[in-house]
Amino acid sequence: MKTLSVNGCDMAYLDLGHGKPLVCVHGSLNDFRAWTPVLKPLSTGRRMIVPSLRHYFPGTCSGTEATFTMAQHVEDVIAFIEALEVGAVDLCGHSRGGHLAFRLALKRPDLVDRLVLAEPGGALDDTLMPTDGVDLGAGAGTRAHVAQSAEKIAAGDLEGGLRVFIEGINGPGAWDRLPAADRQMREDNATTLLAQVNEGRLPFSRAEAEAVTRPTLFIGGADTPGMLPVVLRALAAHVPGAKTAILADAGHSMFRQQPRAFCEAVLGFLGTSA
C-alpha cells in the first residue's frame, strides 16, 4: 500500500504492474480491497492504480465530515491523477465510483483516455427518465435504502443498516450470501453511509451524457435488480459512441461474481487481451 497527499488528505492506494495506467474507483461501503478479484488480470501488461477515497478505509469517518461530498471526491481523484504525473489514464468506476468517474470525465476530459462505468450509481433527471412504462420499483439505485441504512447505523444497529443497504442494491438475501471478507469491508466503511446521505450527488441529465467525449464502456450485471440497469441503459443511449457489456450470472458486484468475464470486457475495450 502507498499513500499520496492530495487536497490535504493522504489517499491510500495500491499500485501494481507496469504500462499504461488504469485507475479504478470503488463504490459505496468499499475501498481499494474491493478490486482484489481482478487485480492480477487487470495489472498484467498495464499499471493498475486503485485508491481508497477520502474517509474510506484505511481512513476514518465519523459520518459528520463536511468534506464527504461527491464534489470533493471528484476533486480528490482529479488531484490524485495529476499527482501521479502520468498524463491521461484509463478510468474505471463502479457504482458510486462510476458516478464519480462520469463527473470527472466531464470536468477534466484531458485526464481520461478511455472510460469504463460499471453500473454507475445515481438518479436520473426528467430528461433521461424512461417513458416506456418500465417499472422503476423501489430497489437498487434509489436513495431510500441509503437513508434507511444510515438511520439504523446511527442507532447502533450496524448489521441491520448494512443489510438494508446491500439488499437494497442486490435484492433479498444478498447480505447473508456475502463472504466474510466482503462483510468486513462493509463494516469497516459503515459510517460513510451517515455522511453519504447528504453528499450532494446530482442526478444525471441527458445534456451531460451527450457531453461525454471520451470512448466509454458501460458494464452491467444481467441479474442486477431495480434502478441501476435503468440508469445504465439511459446513459448508454446518449453517451456518444458508447459500448455496453452485460455479464451473465452477475449482479451489481459483477467483477467479484464474474471476474474473468469482467476483465475480458474491460481489457477488450481498452485494447489489451485478458
Results as ranks from 00 to 15, higher is better:
Ala147Trp: 04
Val197Arg: 07
Ala245Met: 13
Gly271Val: 07
Leu228Asp: 03
Thr44Cys: 13
Gly133Gln: 00
Val197Tyr: 05
Gly268Ala: 09
Ala211Asn: 01
Glu167Asp: 10
His18Asp: 15
Val25Thr: 08
Gly156Asp: 02
Val74Lys: 02
Gln72Asn: 13
Leu158Pro: 01
Gly141Arg: 01
Gln258His: 08
Asn7Asp: 11
Asp188Asn: 15
Ala207Leu: 09
Ser149Asp: 07
Ala155Ser: 14
Ser95Asn: 08
Asp113Gly: 14
Asn30Leu: 12
Val25Trp: 08
Val77Arg: 02
Val38Pro: 02
Ala209Lys: 06
Leu232Gln: 06
Arg183Ala: 05
Gly63Leu: 00
Gly221Trp: 00
Leu202Ile: 12
Leu42Cys: 06
Pro120Tyr: 02
Glu119Gly: 00
Ala83Val: 02
Asp157Gly: 05
Gly251Pro: 01
Ile153Val: 09
Leu104Trp: 03
Asp10Gly: 12
Pro229Thr: 00
Ala190Thr: 04
Gly173Ser: 04
Val50Gly: 05
Ala144Trp: 08
Val23Cys: 08
Leu117Gly: 03
Leu100Arg: 03
Gly168Ser: 06
Glu208Ala: 15
Asn189Ala: 04
Leu162Tyr: 04
Thr191Ala: 09
Asp10Val: 08
Ser28Leu: 11
Gly121Gln: 10
Val231Glu: 03
Pro229Gln: 05
Asp15Asn: 12
Phe32Cys: 11
Glu264Phe: 04
Gly220Met: 06
Gly221Leu: 01
Arg186Val: 00
Arg201Ser: 11
Leu115Cys: 03
Ala250Gly: 08
Asp132Ser: 10
Leu16Thr: 12
Asp176Gly: 15
Thr67Gln: 13
Glu85Lys: 15
Glu151Asp: 14
Gly121Tyr: 14
Asp157Gln: 09
Lys152Arg: 15
Thr192Tyr: 05
Phe57Arg: 01
Ala180Pro: 01
Val146Cys: 07
Val266Thr: 09
Pro109Phe: 03
Gly251Asp: 02
Pro225Phe: 00
Arg183Ile: 09
Phe269Lys: 06
Val6His: 03
Leu14Asn: 11
Glu210Ile: 04
His55Thr: 00
Gly122Phe: 07
Ala154Ser: 11
Leu42Gln: 03
Asp125Ser: 06
Asn198Tyr: 14
Arg256Met: 15
Val164Gly: 01
Asp135Ala: 15
Phe57Pro: 02
Leu115Tyr: 05
Met185Asp: 13
Lys243Asn: 14
Ala174Ser: 15
Gly97Arg: 06
Ala144Pro: 00
Ala79Ser: 13
Ala66Ser: 13
Gly59Pro: 07
Ile78Tyr: 09
Ala154Arg: 12
Gly17Ala: 08
Lys152Asn: 03
Glu199Ser: 15
Asp90Tyr: 03
Ala207His: 11
Thr213Pro: 05
Leu115Asp: 00
Met70Tyr: 11
His238Trp: 07
Val266Pro: 02
Phe255Glu: 05
Thr142Cys: 09
Gln196Asn: 14
Leu91Ile: 09
